[in-house]
Amino acid sequence: MSLINITLIVYIVASIAYIIREIWGSSGAKWASLGLLILAFCLNLTMVAERSIKAGHPPFSNLYESLVFYACCTAFIYIIFEFVYNFRIVGALASILSMLILFYATLQDDTIRPIMPALKSNWMLIHVVTYMLGYAAFGIAFVTSIIFLVVKPFAKKGNESEDGREILPRNFDRLSYKIVAFGFPFLTLGMITGAVWAKKAWGDYWSWDPKETWSLITWLAYLVYLHTPLVLPKMNINKSKASVMLSIWLLVAFGIVNFTFMGLSYLPSAEDSAHVYGSK
């Protein structure tokens, strides 16, 4: 069995372990689930490493390579957060998310091709890594938003704790916020290093190319998310309604992330773009 299939299976098993842990809540299940996810992450990382050795260049030169790395980052960010907060059920969905991304990678052309000269740059390396970490964080925020929207109707009142460590269903919106706040600097850094790289390679830091424009749209979408909490109280929208609106916005924003990442070839302007996967 190939490494990619094993990794996919371990992700699924990890996800099941998280569900078991959520239902029975035993401490054994806690370590088992986290352990399995860490194992899946390591396998995924091995894939990234193997690919970069085989190809002889950083493994982000096409959609297949980027997706494998994206899956890896998603698991990584989740694991970090699990050490800081008590995520529980989020782990099940995060693991599934990584699995789906990796599965989507298996559907792509995995041909190793020499990279074009413009991709040979250290800026490109920082650019992609920061972007992927940012995207991965938004993926986790997407998961917490879904959980928030699903469990909200069932949540009882007056069940929250003060220190923010014990996150109960009602507080998944806060968790979403914290992860977005963690990911946003990465997105900003990714965008800026991308601009600096573009300047070096193509002579202009910003040329309103579809890829650039959509990465700006993504950035603005999360910027709106970060600013609206300042507006909503002034508009007589109560906290609970505001949380629902913001969570829904995060779902939309993650859709935008994925469109920017993979969907641009559907745009009529893609044929002129230098950066869209698979356009050439």
Binding site: W214, L267, P268, D272
Partner: peptide, 10 residues
């Protein structure tokens, strides 16, 4: 505006 700018060829 950005969406329009990528949907309509510029």
């Amino acid at each position: 505006a950005c969406i329009i700018g990528t949907v309509i060829l510029q």
